[in-house]
Amino acid sequence: MKNLLSINDLSHDEAISILDTAAELQKLTAGTVKKLPTLRGRTVANLFFEDSTRTRLSFEAAAKRLSADVINFSAKGSSVSKGESLKDTAQTLEAMGVDLFVLRHPASGAATSLAESGWVHAHIINAGDGTHEHPTQALLDSFTIRKHHGIGRNDFSGVKVAIVGDIAHSRVARSNVLLLKKLGADVTVIAPPTLIPHGIESWGVQHSYDFDEDLASFDVVMMLRVQLERMNDAYFPNGREYARGYGLDESRLHRLKKSAIVMHPGPMNRGLEISSASADSAQSVILEQVANGVIVRMAVLYRSLGGPDIASAGGL
């Protein structure tokens, strides 16, 4: 696995193998060992064309715990208006000796463009491209689900997952749908019709406009962040009406199965898609997701930077 651009790049077994590796890394780093020498001498560049302190810090922590050197590049859309700068920036950093790019970009497909264009040779991990995908988020979410619904499970069949919110514009939803389906989970996406993507029928998931309908049947409720700008584009009238229909408030929280877990990729809009009571409840695994993010990203970095097997057989 040189690049991780989309969950589609992974087979079921590869995805499971990443989750297994992460599980071992978690045990390995749970005690006194905070730092492993695995990526010593390798340089990871966080190439962020969009603000996301959390994701950047998570990748940075992951890389550093594997002893990689980390350099950070941040530029917001305004200062880098033209797409050409993706090419220039990546080439410039590569000239400084980067082995792997962690790319966050507001344009869907930016990671694919960088990987396919031949502009650079370094490995590429997609850390969120526009409204397309965010594969490491999906991996950490599945890692978290796996821990709570049967450690070591390679098959998520029977696990009912609801993804609630702005499905149409969510890279988190796209990657999660692809991965959860690959692992065999039963996925329902829930949103007002304006925020359900066109052609949802081809996604192989159920969709619903009604959050309350099957509320008590879900094992996992994954709430998505709502962008308030969507109101201006008339996707929904206002925050109150959205929260009433699709927010995880206390009353809905109480109607969940006791074993159900509540997830959110962060940052949260408390009081909009999720109430404070739900976010801070015993069923919430939101902070665990953050911790697992570092572990899973360590596994992904390790998997990406492992080279081809040219060593002779017979032990070393």
Partner: peptide, 21 residues
């Protein structure tokens, strides 16, 4: 004792799933 993450030849070998220590 799994030693995968302590190898110095990561460039030379394919990555593999860790084995429990």
């Amino acid at each position: 004792l799994d030693i995968t993450m302590h190898r110095d030849d990561i460039r030379l070998r394919p990555p593999r799933a860790l084995v429990p220590t």
